[in-house]
């Protein structure tokens, strides 16, 4: 796993973005950017050459689920690994996210160990 990979963190709460950014830094990933919803994230993804996307689900503007669908529908972005970190815990939602092509799903509140495990799993499967 390339520790220098470029990661976009999308969450409407700056505190949560900061927590994820800190946890990623502890795991050795320091090349991170932030966006506060899907509408802000989409243009960044299109121009920024990101290697990994970590997104919340429930956000004003474009939700994380719509962001997931938009990324999978975009020819250039469709293979981008996506990890959802969200409070959404309904069975139907998780099934929908899986069908839409999410690579990992973490429900809040979560631990640093879970984040590490899921990221490792995602990149193990890709390589």
């Amino acid at each position: 796993m390339d520790k220098n990979m470029k990661i976009l963190i999308v969450d409407d709460f700056s505190t949560m973005r900061r927590i994820i950014k800190n946890l990623l830094r502890d795991l050795g990933f320091t090349n991170t950017d932030e966006a506060d919803d899907g509408n802000t994230a989409m243009p960044m993804l299109k121009t920024g050459k990101y290697d990994f996307l970590v997104t919340d689900w429930n956000m004003p503007g474009m939700s994380g689920f719509d962001l997931l669908k938009n990324v999978r529908a975009d020819d250039q972005l469709k293979t981008l690994p996506i990890l959802m970190v969200t409070a959404e815990a309904k069975r139907d939602q998780i099934v929908a996210a899986a069908q839409a092509g999410v690579n990992g799903y973490i429900i809040k509140p979560f631990t640093a160990a879970v984040l590490k495990e899921k990221i490792e799993k995602i990149f193990e499967r890709i390589q």
Partner: peptide, 28 residues
């Protein structure tokens, strides 16, 4: 559910809601 509904209160009392990361992992 597509827009997102936020945190679920008392998930253990609801059948359509998973109560933790282990349940999510099992489902996935």
């Amino acid at each position: 559910a597509e827009q997102g509904v936020g945190p679920q209160i008392m998930p253990e009392q609801r059948k359509d809601v998973l109560s933790g990361q282990d349940d999510v992992d099992d489902l996935l």
